[in-house]
Amino acid sequence: MNTNQLKRKSRSETSDAFWSWIFMTPTTLFLVITALIPLLYSVYISFFKLKMNLPNATPSYVGFANYARMLTDKTLRVATSNTFLFAFVSVTLELVIGLFVAMAFCSDRRWARLGTSVLLVPMIMAPVAIGTLWRMMLDGNTGVINYLLGFLGMDSVNWLSNPKYAMPAVLFVNVWQLVPWVVIVAAAGLKALPGDCLEAALVDGASNRQIFWHIVLPMISPLLVIIYMLRFVDAFKVFDTVYTMTNGGPGTATEMLPNYIYKQGMKYFDVGYTAALAIAFVVVMSLFTAIFLKIRKRVEERVQ
């Protein structure tokens, strides 16, 4: 390389660095203004007592009172345990069912492609529409689900207004909504499995079941861990379907954190407390994200 080329190279490097920052700028500004600043504003508000429906009332500083209130908030405790239960059960079911469906659909034939098109529907339908559709189908009097279950000899159930059945119903709808997502992602993982390996096992006389337990499952398990974590974090944010199906009811049977926070803000207009709840929620979610990133890193290292 002669001096001329060297000069040109260093000049282009400075220009590259400059342009790299330019590329980063719009997104950074956008996210700082629309996400980071509101979050910090939330922290600030959480130290005040402020009612949104009284715009002229001056907010009064209350220190950590909003956070202290959380400790004695009984509904919050119910909402928290409901959310954990919901996330744990729904994601576990989605993963197991999703894996089996993905395997059954593992084919390059036409029927599998068309089947995948059908599987995409719940993913594309507005979650609000999913909630209202299932609310209609699960209706205690006119719902088609009770009618169909009647053929199997089952009694009519008030799915959404009976505290005993409301949570299973909401869980079921979430499973319906998100199994397809697990199927699509798991199918991509199955397609990436080395075919030689499976064929070799087949030649050695292993049965399909043995191959599943000893080869397919171990090879796909890192992906399953990632799917589980992604869905788990996501399940905590469930809002649209709960809001439209039960709005947390009956009583607090299906009350979950996002819906509870929404109610505190948009129904009771208790801005200070809502902000404190939101901050606590973000802290917990960040913790989950950190754990997720750690696990993902470890999984990736294991794969390599």
Partner: peptide, 19 residues
């Protein structure tokens, strides 16, 4: 960016509404 993708939208709902 990753954290932005993960964190719950509800967290900023109230301040965004106020602004």
């Amino acid at each position: 960016f990753m954290i932005q993708k993960m964190y719950p939208a509800i967290a900023t709902a109230i301040p965004v509404y106020l602004v």
